[in-house]
Nucleic acid binder design. Structure first.
Lengths: 125, 125
DNA sequence: GTATCATCTCATTGAATGCTGATACGATGA
DNA sequence: TCATCGTATCAGCATTCAATGAGATGATAC
């Protein structure tokens, strides 16, 4: 059985990973791995809608994964810590070996009528 | 704009992080960081229900994060790769510095009536 | 002061998620 | 063969999420 302190730690860790666990947010973070960008630049790079980007940036900001800096009427964002990039890099290297399992995961992308045949598929594309 | 190949890579990465982005799954992985465990042992360690654990293990297995080995009528699980543990460790170290932001994140745990004042809060405790 | 640009916030909505209880399956030993 | 143990699957439900469109805010230029 877990102690409550451990549970709290888990919840926070889970939040962190979940912050990383969305293609839109990940594409934003990926873009920022190259260096600071304005919101407009992020919109252009990712191809996401403006309000969508803003929402995700708000989430990432509140999670402490990115930092915002106002410059005139522009806002520039950058990763808050090198380890954010490290996490993504580690994930990439891990995926290079395990990708087949994730790509071909039969738990994903199952047509709706059968989709609940197996529980707990992670959100798909 | 993102190329489709990049998008696919992002989706897979996001899946990986999302696999890590649930307290239940994280507690299972955390337990397995100490070494291989049977399903029963995982149930006991985590305090989760049997079907819940089984479902999450199925997800983790399909994602390639854990590996199962049948031994008689027991099934033993272990982490598929050291980097799975590395990811969690990096997250812990990152959280040690950024935790305040995640803990006090005003986007989380806002009472229902106000909860949608800000979008995209990550699932809370 | 008004128009405009960059960004943020809000409410809604369809879809995905996680949990539970019941049930099915496969292996073992009586 | 039958009962039992360990594990996996299924169906249903309540909750949560991500995307959108419209509107609000704040800064700058005219």
């Amino acid at each position: 059985m877990l102690l409550t302190a451990e549970k709290a730690g888990l919840a926070v860790k889970a939040k962190l990973f979940r912050g990383l666990g969305d293609p839109s947010r990940l594409s934003i973070l990926d873009a920022l791995r190259g260096g600071p960008l304005t919101v407009s630049a992020i919109i252009e790079t990712t191809g996401l809608s403006q309000s969508n980007v803003s929402n995700h940036l708000g989430c990432l900001r509140d999670c402490g994964l990115v930092v915002a800096e106002q410059e005139g009427r522009f806002v520039t964002y950058h990763l808050s810590d090198d380890r954010v990039g490290d996490l993504i890099a580690t994930a990439e290297s891990l995926l290079a070996d395990v990708a087949r399992g994730v790509y071909e995961c039969t738990r994903y992308n199952i047509p709706r009528t059968e989709s609940r045949r197996k529980g707990y598929e992670v959100r798909s594309t």
